[in-house]
Amino acid sequence: MVMAKDEKELLSKMASLLKSGATMLDMMCPTCKVPLFKLKSGEVVCPKCGQRFVIVSSDEEESRVKADMVLSSLEQAAVQKINSLIMPLSTSETFEELTEIGRALITLLQVIQLSRQIRGAEKGVAEKGK
C-alpha cells in the first residue's frame, strides 16, 4: 500500500506529538476526522489542521468557556482600540479632541475592567462547583 505525501506528513506529525509527551485522545477533529491530541500544556489540538479545542464535560461548563472566550475577545478588541488612540492623543491640539479621546479611553478601560471582573467571578463560581 502506497501512502500519499500528505498522509506520511500527518503520521510523522502525530508520531512527533506522541514522542514529545502528547496524548492521543479518543475524540476526532470535526473538520479533519483525525484523532485529537492533548499536549503536556493541557491544550487539545488537531495534528492536521492545527485547530485548538476546549474539551468540556457539561453544558454548564461549555457556557462558561464560551463566555470566557467572548470576554477575552472583547478585552483584546478594547486593547487594540486603546492602542489606536495613542497617536491621536499625542497629536491632538484642542481641548475638545483631548476630551473626546479621553472619554473613549475611559470607556474602553472600563470595558476591560468589567470584563476581567466578570471573568474572575465566573472562575470563582466554577472553582466552588468543583
Score class of each variant (00 low, 15 high):
A67W: 06
F37Q: 07
S58F: 05
D68F: 05
G50M: 07
G21I: 15
E43Q: 09
S90R: 12
M24T: 02
M27C: 13
S90C: 05
L39I: 07
M87I: 15
Q80E: 08
V56A: 07
E43I: 02
E62W: 02
A78V: 00
Q76L: 08
K38D: 06
S84L: 13
S90G: 09
V45N: 03
N83E: 06
I55H: 04
S41V: 09
E96R: 12
M24K: 10
S72F: 06
S63C: 10
A78C: 03
S84H: 10
V44D: 00
R64I: 15
P88T: 13
T91D: 07
M69G: 03
Q51E: 07
S58N: 08
L89R: 09
S20T: 14
T94C: 02
A67G: 05
M14S: 07
T91P: 01
S63K: 14
F95L: 15
C32I: 12
C32S: 06
L17N: 10
S58L: 15
E62V: 11
V65Y: 00
C49I: 13
M14G: 05
K81Y: 10
L85K: 09
T23G: 04
A15Q: 10
C32T: 05
A78M: 09
T23R: 12
M14L: 10
V54D: 05
L25T: 08
C29E: 11
V70Y: 03
R52D: 06
N83D: 13
D59C: 04
L36T: 11
I55N: 09
Q80I: 08
K40S: 09
M87F: 01
S84Q: 11
E75C: 15
M69P: 00
Q80S: 09
P47R: 05
L18M: 08
V79Y: 01
Q51A: 14
S72G: 07
A78F: 02
S72M: 03
M28K: 14
T94H: 05
S57D: 08
I101R: 00
G50D: 00
